[in-house]
Design a protein around this nucleic acid. Structure first.
Length: 643
RNA sequence: GGGGGUGUAGCUCAGUUGGUUAGAGCGCUGGCCUGUCACGCCAGAGGCCGCGGGUUCGAGUCCCGUCACUCCCGCCA
């Protein structure tokens, strides 16, 4: 925390119209000593608003900044002047000719104050300000840029509505929280760059105007003036380019890569565009990839995580199937100590008919331990039961194991002692714990047990705070069955190497083949997915054939990539953690827009710049585009263009 | 595309069972105040209660529609 503040304070800003942003104290002092109201003083400032200390007392200085707050005592006036570096209190009184003008100035106006630094009397020192030991007695005052009444209060923590915040983002960015978040973001990104470069990665740029990719999300299209009827696409990720760089013989690539997807937004998913730490390495195994990125992430999280504990490398590696069973999710939050157990077999042929019958029909039973919940009142269990009913379930059965070891509850009555003991063992329960049950077909059982695990963890407050818990989810299935069409599809990235290579593709049940595909997860947030890539064209053809693509189709869709593979591609792999989500975790913000300077709103509109926007008919003509708008609103139909 | 929440002063919000002139804090304007640091005190301006329709003697409040913002599902290889 303190290192952060220090960094912000003394970092050299880029956009300031002078050489020495934080001029040496002695120089500034010496100058003003020669000529107190120095004409050769910098036109805007000799010091920043976060800089003045006791040692500056008696020197004449100049600061510029925004009027953060006014305290008008009638005969005595305080102005807090704010800039990127801090706040300095300026004082004047009625004996000064400046008093009237300073009293009138509106909040958020940009002003310049020249005057003498004076020390504050001990009882008026403000320990919460970096500059709180001193204040500036104004000897000259100018409004450099007057502010209109602001639509949101910069000097307040009170949350403004998001629409207002986005429309006036430049004001929102002045506020402390956004200012802190944006500085964190830039600092995190430069730390990541340093970390990657230290590991021997080189940063490359890849095209922004590229070809539409047939798989995955919808892409944004860019019309071509020179090629009527043809479109570029913005990259959803530089996936193919980074692989092509490997084939170009570069050993280790990375990029803070902009990615564009025309998909709906979520709180943790920004609409339109986001950034990935995209990287790729040649001649590597999965372990090599993990070993390369784990220290970079751990270092960044240790440096900027505000003292929270961080998983030390190597991170736990959890097979996909295990994750679905034990956590009911492929992005488990390991801060929650609860682990789900599979107990369907124990209910088979038991006296608890509902579960016994369902298991006979192929359902499974998952046990979700509730540590210490035996001490909870009946209402606790009732509350969870009615919550489950609201989620569309018949209810949420449970057994309570009392401190004396006796099993209680409606289900317990129908189970014999041996089964009750086996459940206790299988689910890792102790006396004083309770356990909830989910009985559903396997996929739904995993999903819902995962939700119950989270809910129970929250209710019992057993989720560890102050920690970043990382893990890898590995061994994703290569293919999956589309439930509607019954067809086999790639379950993730079609360019991943199937585990077992060609032999596996030719001899195994496709649905049992695992891919060399992995996700990195932190605190239940999926940071990225990655893979060891398929670098062999014949294996690629075979994999696509299983997913129902003919060789011709593959060649048509992926010709650039396939051709490159035919000229000797190194075995390679990589990963692409999301920068925005990393910063979100570090800033402890629940919404991704809080860590993006100029985000679009949920409907992918930029309210400040007015994007997207209609364009003049002339531009459309030039692009050979004719609009065919939906006949929804009358005022919109007018804009359709012929030509 | 679907579901939930919200929409009242420049900003954040309150507004009871449908009942007189719609309130508060901050900001804004004016007045008082020489040591505050979220300064304090007094006064004032500021409202198409998102918009349209309906029910009613009467609607910020109830109903229908619509728009906007937001959260979630679908989607995001």
């Amino acid at each position: 925390m303190t290192s952060l503040a220090g960094r912000c304070l003394f970092r050299a800003p880029v956009r300031l119209p002078m050489k020495a942003v934080v001029p040496s104290v002695s120089r500034a002092t010496a100058r003003s000593d020669r000529n107190p109201m120095a004409e050769d003083m910098h036109p805007y400032r000799t010091h920043t608003c976060g800089e003045l200390r006791s040692e500056h007392v008696e020197s004449t200085v100049r600061i510029s900044g925004w009027v953060h707050r006014k305290r008008d005592h009638g005969q005595l006036l305080f102005l807090d002047i704010r800039d990127d570096f801090g706040i300095t209190q300026v004082v004047t009184d009625v004996s000064s000719a400046l008093f009237e003008e300073m009293e009138k100035v509106r909040l958020e106006s940009v002003v310049r104050v020249t005057g003498k630094v004076v020390s504050r009397s001990p009882e008026t020192v403000n320990p919460r300000l970096l500059t709180g030991e001193v204040e500036l007695r104004a000897e000259s005052f100018d409004v450099l840029a007057a502010a209109a009444q602001v639509p949101l209060q910069v000097n307040s923590d009170e949350d403004a509505g998001e629409e207002v915040r986005l429309r006036y983002r430049y004001l929102d960015l002045r506020r402390e929280r956004m200012h802190r978040n944006m500085k964190l973001r830039t600092d995190v990104i430069s730390a990541i760059r340093r970390g990657m470069e230290d590991q021997g990665f080189r940063e490359f740029q890849t095209p922004i105007l590229t070809a539409s990719s047939p798989e995955g999300a919808r892409d944004f299209l860019v019309p071509s003036r020179l090629h009527p009827g043809k479109f570029y696409a913005l990259p959803q990720a530089p996936q193919m380019f980074k692989q092509l760089l490997m084939m170009g013989g570069f050993d280790k690539y990375f990029q803070i890569a902009p990615c564009f997807r025309d998909e709906a937004s979520r709180a943790d998913r920004s609409p339109g565009e986001f950034y990935q730490l995209d990287f790729e390495m040649s001649f590597v195994t999965q372990d090599d990839v993990f070993n390369a990125i784990e220290p970079v992430l751990s270092n960044v999280f240790n440096e900027f995580g505000g003292g929270r504990t961080v998983t030390a490398p190597p991170y736990p590696r959890i097979p996909y199937e295990t994750a679905m069973l034990k956590y009911g999710s492929d992005k488990p939050d390991l801060r929650n100590p609860i682990e789900i157990a599979d107990v369907g077999e124990i209910f088979q042929g038991s006296g608890f008919g509902i579960f016994a019958k369902a298991v006979g029909k192929g359902s499974v039973v998952r046990a979700i331990p509730a540590p210490g919940a035996a001490a909870k009142p009946r209402s606790f269990f009732d509350k969870l039961n009615s919550w489950a009913q609201k989620e569309g379930k018949p209810g949420l059965g449970y057994i309570v194991y009392g401190e004396d070891g006796a099993a209680k509850g409606p289900i317990a009555k129908n189970l014999d002692a041996e089964r009750l003991e086996r459940i206790k063992t299988e689910a890792g329960l102790r006396n004083g714990d309770a356990v909830f049950f989910v009985c559903e077909p396997v996929k739904e059982a995993a999903r819902f047990a995962g939700i119950v695990r989270t809910r129970v963890g929250e209710e019992l407050e057993v989720i560890e705070r102050g920690a970043y818990k990382f893990c890898w989810i590995v061994d994703f299935p290569m293919f999956e069955l589309d439930e509607e069409t019954g067809k086999i599809e790639f379950s993730h990235n079609p360019f991943s190497m199937p585990q077992g290579g060609m032999e596996a593709l030719e001899t195994q049940d496709p649905l049992l083949i695992k891919a060399a595909q992995y996700d990195i997860v932190c605190n239940g947030v999926e940071l990225s997915s990655g893979a060891i890539r398929n670098h062999l064209p014949e294996v690629m053809y075979r994999a696509f054939a299983i997913a129902g693509y003919s060789a011709e189709e593959v060649e048509r869709e992926f010709s650039g990539m396939l051709n490159a593979l035919k000229y000797g591609a190194p075995p390679h792999g990589g990963c692409a953690p999301g920068i925005d989500r990393i910063v979100m975790l570090l800033a402890d913000e629940p919404n991704i827009r809080e860590i993006v300077a100029f985000p679009m709103n949920q409907r992918a509109e930029d309210l400040m710049m007015g994007a997207p926007a209609e364009v003049p008919a002339e531009r459309l003509r030039e692009l050979h585009i004719k609009l065919a708008l939906p006949p929804k609103r009358q005022d919109e139909t007018k804009t359709s263009v012929t030509g």
